[in-house]
Design a protein around this nucleic acid. Structure first.
Lengths: 206, 206, 206, 206
DNA sequence: TATGAATGAGTTTTCATTCAT
DNA sequence: TATGAATGAAAACTCATTCAT
């Protein structure tokens, strides 16, 4: 990539990061383009060199941020779960790591807002070989255990949605229960969904 | 209540209903006070006779609307589940009815947005004897089966959150899976959470 | 008309007049809405209570201003020509008066810009009984002399266009000839067009 | 001329042509410098190497474009009228050719906008020997017939203005009458102006 | 000469809220 | 109470022009 292109991308990135911080703190609708450019240290017009529109920025920001986090989150979770002896404990450790990650990255949740699962769906299509490999390293483990791809997709969707929703409220409002309060129950619920998914897969095969 | 008070309440109600319809269709931030008063057929200034503020309206609207729906939802679900022979099938029918209700009231979800469970928490405090009685008619059934109140609250919270989150996305975006696709898995997941909750309750008692 | 409506119309009128003065002095594209509201002594938002848009104002302004002037112009010209003994001198005095009027109302020309004739065409459709009566009092005189309506329309169009174009440049740029320099020739030209029109009318009749 | 100079002129020309096309399609005020440079395939900064300013470009463009067309127009008209037996038919054929030319070059009219006659005035001062010779080949014909230079200038001005104005509206708006509808009347009118001009010339001489 | 990223003043437009009637 | 005209701060977006490379 030419040096110029590189620089442009970096600046675009800087704008997105500034916006991200503001969205997180003040919410999207209460953040003006003006706030963003001030935070990014650029002129107002410059913003429109990089984004067609405020909504163009929002779109790109969500795509980027959630993709990034998803990747990182899955990487960490997969790493920690790697040595698990069986699929059940693999899943348990994986989910536990997932929740840890969310706690660490609270801010992300306030921007992306309960939409992590939408992101999950687009994850394998990021044209990012890295991400794809990662995704498969996890799903393969389940496919070996008798899941069909279809039932796996559904299961993953439900589990993420559930964890994301519960974590979002628990973290951002600390109401009505803290996340640690709910964690065991949440993981149990997720596991039983996963078990159910496996069963569904097997039935179809038989 | 004096007739005057009555009339005031009715008008307030009309404003809320108009706002509700608009919020549902266009989202809160894209709905101007002007749109609301036009829809309600009142003058702009009148709005401020009934609400301190736009955000005052929003607050009251969410409180009212979600409370109302929650009540109606629980009533219907409890009714349908009433004749269930055991607690397990009671729960299953109850949840099924819950989902049916959400499908019917799609619009509500877009306004209240994945926050039904918050509402659940405030439900018993609506100073509405009716609502309270209703709530207890359901929880009592579980308390009899060995739940502690604490574990019941948590369980209910997680289950609602889960159903609400999944249903919200499934209904509003029909992506990536339709709700009917997910329903069986969702109910199974919820049931296993409930079973876990019961177990947790019993353990503590022992 | 209710008093309120009256007042609103008056304010609208005041905005149009302020805009008119600015357009005349600085041209439409160099006049900001801000300039207009300052000149009219109103707040910026008020402008949008009366006009959808800057272009809405422009449209209404041109329609109003050119219609008004046209009416006034024709009234004055018809008055002065009234006592003319024959159609030829009627036309001559009429045109002379027309040019006088334009000289007096130079500013109008800079706004309406060489489009008076377009206005002429719409003149009889202003739903203004007054204007219509006036228009007919002039055309009748020509119809009596053997003009067909069709040839009269064409002739009037060409004559206005010609006078308007010449007068516009002569007045606004004083270049390359002053209007007084050109006046006799212009009137002669117009008269010969008129004579030609009359002939055309008669031929068709014969 | 050095090759460098040549190249500069060519690029300048390319910019003007691009601007011309845009002005024609979208009007001057709705065409941004950015649009022009994109169309010309140059960088934004380059524009300011060739023109001081946007208005500098406009000035040069109008001068160039109208001069060019005027020259071409007169050449064609003079050619077609060359064999005319008398001055009257010379004028008639000349004007007819003029109108034909305008119909062919509609686009020019939308840019230069009813200002062809202004251009006529500057025509003999183009420091273009070619143009000057051409101009004299036409005017000489009239001077021989008793016109004074002064009356000829006025007459030419009025005739051009008249034709230009009528043709502009007729062509660009096709309203309220098509040009072909008006052509005979227009030429008759012009001829009678010319005749009047000749008479005026003679009177003064006598 | 040529480039195109950066600038920021300037423009249009919106909208929650006030206030005289 | 009810009205709706008026307000003006604030938002989004544009564009001629400059300047470092």
């Amino acid at each position: 990539m030419p040096v110029d292109q590189q620089k442009k991308l970096e600046k675009k990135r800087r704008i997105i990061e500034s916006a991200y911080a503001l969205f997180r703190d003040k919410n999207i609708y209460n953040t003006a383009v003006d706030d963003i450019v001030k935070a990014a240290g650029i002129a107002r017009g410059t913003f429109y060199l990089y984004f067609k529109d405020k909504s163009d920025l929002i779109e790109q920001l969500i795509f980027l941020k959630s993709g990034e986090s998803m990747k990182e989150m899955i990487r960490q979770a997969a790493e920690r779960a790697a040595k698990a002896p069986d699929i059940e404990s693999y899943a348990r450790v994986f989910l536990d790591a997932l929740i840890d990650f969310m706690v660490e990255r609270k801010e992300l949740l306030t921007v992306v807002n309960k939409n992590m699962s939408a992101c999950l769906t687009s994850f394998p299509h990021f044209n990012d070989d890295d991400a794809e490999a990662l995704y498969h390293s996890v799903t393969d483990r389940f496919l070996e255990e008798g899941y069909t791809q279809a039932s796996l997709d559904r299961t993953a969707y439900i589990v993420f949605e559930m964890i994301d929703a519960v974590a979002y409220d628990a973290i951002t409002y600390k109401k009505p229960f803290g996340l640690e309060d709910l964690r065991p129950m949440l993981i149990d619920a997720a596991l039983s969904v996963i078990r159910g998914g496996a069963a569904a897969g097997r039935e179809k095969t038989e």
